[in-house]
């Protein structure tokens, strides 16, 4: 059962990381990056590191997303080709 959760988390992390890199709209890319933080939170928790999971839940899914979004709002939201 734990192995299934780990497999699902790994595969979804890789898919989300691919989407983060390939997304053209940078705001959507930041939202996907926050989803990446959520998936890695699950992974840390399953690998019995709840301390790291707490940090990742707040930083990866919260504060870093806000910092990225504010930086984007002050520059531009579309990636130039």
């Amino acid at each position: 059962m734990i192995g299934l959760i780990v497999l699902g988390a790994f595969v979804s992390l890789i898919i989300v990381a691919y989407l983060v890199v390939m997304e053209r709209d940078l705001a959507s890319s930041v939202i996907l990056f926050m989803a990446f933080g959520l998936g890695s939170t699950i992974l840390y928790f399953v690998f019995s590191a709840p301390d790291v999971a707490l940090t990742e839940a707040v930083i990866g899914a919260g504060i870093s997303g806000v910092v990225f979004l504010v930086s984007l709002l002050q520059t531009q939201t579309k990636e130039s080709r």
């Binding site: 301390d51 999971a53 707490l54 940090t55 707040v58 930083i59 919260g62 504060i63 806000v66």
Partner: peptide, 17 residues
Amino acid sequence: SPGGGFQGGVIVASGFL
């Protein structure tokens, strides 16, 4: 329990955020 200074400090900061 799990957690500590870094984790709790960041949670407090997210409340201010």
